[in-house]
């Protein structure tokens, strides 16, 4: 059980739901280890990275959030893949 008193199994899903609903990010991986919630994945701006964290925090019942979500630079590519 986490500090929030919920089995990690269900907490993961509650956080994923909240991140989808509030931050509209579906591709975020959520992992709960004891009292710590890890967030992973990629978003396109620093603001969205914060939004994901806020949404997760709102559903995490006091657990510590480790926001490991990265911001994708999305630069112009420097090469191509030739498919022959």
């Amino acid at each position: 059980m986490t500090r929030a008193g919920e089995a990690p199994h269900y907490l993961v899903e509650r956080i994923r739901d909240r991140v989808a609903e509030q931050a509209h990010e579906l591709g975020i991986h959520v992992e709960v280890c004891g009292d710590v919630v890890y967030l992973r994945g990629g978003v396109v701006s620093e603001e969205r990275r914060r939004e994901v964290e806020e949404a997760a925090r709102a559903a995490a019942g006091g657990c510590t959030i480790r926001n490991e979500v990265s911001v994708i630079p999305a630069a112009v590519p420097d090469g191509e893949e030739r498919l022959t």
Binding site: G27, G41, G42, V43, V44, I72, P73, A74, A75, V76, P77, G79, E80, E81, R82, L83, T84
Partner: peptide, 21 residues
């Protein structure tokens, strides 16, 4: 048939480029 997942968080660039002969 070659399949490419071009989701931005996967390719991590503005677009991927594939050359077809």
């Amino acid at each position: 048939v070659r399949v490419r997942n071009v989701a931005l968080p996967v390719i991590k660039q503005a677009y991927a480029v594939y050359g077809l002969e």
